[in-house]
Design a binder for these strands. Structure first.
Lengths: 121, 121
DNA sequence: CAGGATCCACGACGATACTG
DNA sequence: CAGTATCGTCGTGGATCCTG
């Protein structure tokens, strides 16, 4: 294995947790709406399949970001929620949301558009 | 196209900018060491190919995170640096680095290891 | 020196069918 | 209801060769 800057690995670790097509939106719903059943999450996230929802939820559970509670009954009932520890990542999501919003503005700003035009010439 | 929570889209936009196998380490080197030539970056990042380095640098340039300066001479000389705007993302990288470090501790903590053991039984 | 062009491998994701 | 199993697709990244 190659060696990397130790500083950097941690950034990539954090990235790995958030990376996955549905993970941000899953976290968003659990953070905003609290505990939710599997089917509630599925309904709340249009386009996600059961497979991907399961996969991503299990990965988040492994990371101790999400808590999975199974109620042994028929029909089955499984509830998901953010762990106390999982909430520590919320500030990062907020920061990313804010920066992302500013970024969209920036990319549409006049100055940037003009720089783009220059390059084309 | 499906509609998504507007809040969320911005998080994903930010994620998209940092996502790419070499992007974090590229940004790290440019932030720490300042302006660097293509070959300097390549040497500083073991394992990266010219192709991927070029690809990622160009993407970062499109996002106005990185500045690319070509010196018209033979042999060619191209320098890359973080734009002033690009530096606005540094706090997020720092936050991710800190959280990542804490996360590694957390996953190795006694309490977490015990939770893992419980699940296995 | 700093690329561009091709071709290829692999893993993430998706569609569908089946199940306790 | 909340999954699992299987198969197919597609995009990211890598290997290699060529060029101004």
């Amino acid at each position: 294995m190659e060696k990397k800057e130790p500083q950097l690995c941690k950034v990539e670790d954090t990235l790995n947790i958030l990376t996955g097509k549905w993970k941000p939106i899953i976290l968003f719903h659990l953070l905003v709406n609290g505990t939710q059943r599997f089917s509630e999450l599925k309904r709340a996230i249009p386009g996600v399949t059961r497979k991907m929802l399961t996969t991503h939820l299990r990965e988040l559970e492994e990371q101790d970001i999400v808590l999975r509670e199974v109620y042994p009954q028929v029909p089955p009932k499984v509830e998901y929620s953010i762990t106390e520890y999982g909430r520590t990542i919320e500030p990062i999501l907020d920061a990313m949301h804010e920066w992302g919003a500013k970024h969209l503005e920036h990319m549409n700003s006049t100055e940037h558009q003009e720089r783009v035009k220059e390059k084309q010439s």
